[in-house]
Design a protein around this nucleic acid. Sequence first.
DNA 1: GTAGGGTTAG
Length: 666
Amino acid sequence: MLHSICLASSLHNNHFPPPKLNNVQTPTTTTYSVKSHNVGSGECRVYADFTPAKLYNVQTPTSQNPNTTLIYHFNSPFELKQAVAILIKTNKPLTLLPLPRVASICALTPNFPLAQQIFNYINYPEIPLWNTCLRNLAEGNNVIDAILLFHQMCSYNVMPDSFTCSFVLKACVHVLDIYYGRIVHGYIEKLGFQSNLVLINALLHLYGSCGAMADALQLFDKMPQRDIVSWNIMITLLAKKGDVDGAFELFSRMSERNLRSWTAMITGFVHCAKAKEAIRLFIEMEETGLKANEVTVVAVLAACADLGSLEFGRRIHEYSNKSGFRRNVHVCNTLIDMYIKCGCLEAAKSVFEEMKERTIVSWSAMIQGLAIHGQADEALELFNEMIKTGMKPNEVTFLGILHTCSHMGLINKGREFFASMSRDYKMSPQIEHYGCMVDLLSRAGLLEDAYELITNMHIKPNGVIWGSFLGGCRIQKNVEMAEEAMRHLGVLDPLNDGYYIIMSNIYAEAKRWEDAARVRKLMKDRGVKKTPGWSTITIAGETHEFVAGDDNHPQAEEIFKRWDKLLEQMRLKGYVPNTSVVLLDMEENKKEEYLYRHSEKLALVFGLMNTKSGETIRIMKNLRVCEDCHAAFKVISEIAKRDIVVRDRNRFHCFKDGFCSCKDYW
DNA sequence: GTAGGGTTAG
């Protein structure tokens, strides 16, 4: 696509050397159309308040000094246009313009054809001039123009130098253009720059980023010498591709590492969902005496967020403040995310409040955070506040706001935001936005509407869409609609255990045991294994993991005893076990026992036994919390006078005085 | 006159 644009745009004007100015007809009106058979066209209009005297000061050519110079410093493409127009009007050559200045201004203009045209008046630009222009284009928002300019250079047979190659490669990385990257690679070989590590490293970066990992690896392998940057690039590329083992192997083989090497590897672990390894590596890095910078801090905080490890996150926060990173936007945004994912909404809020400058990421993270903590009103308020500051929402912001609506069952608001996205902000909804809407509608009981939305989507629905719909069917106890969803899921995501479990659950709740068993058999036949549920609780820096029915824990017996005592008190408060969540067909009392050994209950009792009275208990779970545990936790929060914060796969539940922050809608 | 690598919200 890009190549055809480049070629098409460059065809209209590729004469080199460019024509001399005196070939150009100069009209006498105030609008100067620069038009000739070989120059291309453009319009230079002189505005009334710009007089030649104001704009430039041209020394009169004398016999001692035959070359005139323009000493006016224009600062924008607009002013450059004025200068050009005046030069044309006064019949002076455009070569009077200070060339480096023209190059950088040209690079700023979004109207590149005109820039090119001005550029073309300059006879035989020296290579640094091309390069400066390329650099400015590559660094600004005109990356495609940089590549276009390079294309033009090639068509003029201007020989690039190593700087040219470097700038073009940078532009290529920006737009993931491997085509021109390979052309530059050709020049690098032809011009003998193979030992220029800056260039070869840039090529590694480009190939890897464009998904040509084989090329990157081949190039890396045959490099006669590599520097630390080469290794760091390869580590980043491999980890981004998901090959965290390959990345770590390279990291281990490095004879010398700098802070960026460590940061790249820590980030790589986080990217590959290995947060524990990331933190371990960070500690190892600290032991070598290296001091983390902002980027490292961001990586480690992301790991804390994944693990929900508040203690370590707080420690990093302190370190970050001590190191003077308080005002770094990336750090603050990641802190917000970390505190949210560790269940400390208040701490997230205070980081947000203290920020002097906020980006769309800060706002979106905070809105999403309020949503998953069930604070819909505040999330919507924050959205409005954001709009008032003039910040424009993006796709992620809308995802957060739609999440808010779906978590709280705000049907009309959700519909309004969904419509507003495309109507007011000209954003076309992504599959994730549809996912939120399907979730919102189906959970609110509007299965027909959800179904209609799915069938009218402009994108092909994926497993997540039908999965949301299936989830809604379970809440609505609609077996037929669920079966329809399963028909799609059987094709779209046949190996995902969650869907079989939900379907089996739906049958079980309808007491259709044979059907439930049939689904479980189907699951088995297809080799799909149920993800075991686990819950963790961290006490004094140590994380304890529980799985359902766990009797291997050293304190198992005590936990069971304590539970039995607690159960008596719970029954007095009206707790009745909800055995319908057990999808197996077994005797009622067996079901109860099964229910009482859910991992989050074990973790909670363990927490009650091992923390001081009044202390908040924080539990993390890999699946969604079940209805019975939810009811039980409400009662326990009242009996034990404890705040209990549970992070499940989708959101937080904060139990306090017999109530949950989700208001029982989740 | 001009070059390189690691970062945030879903």
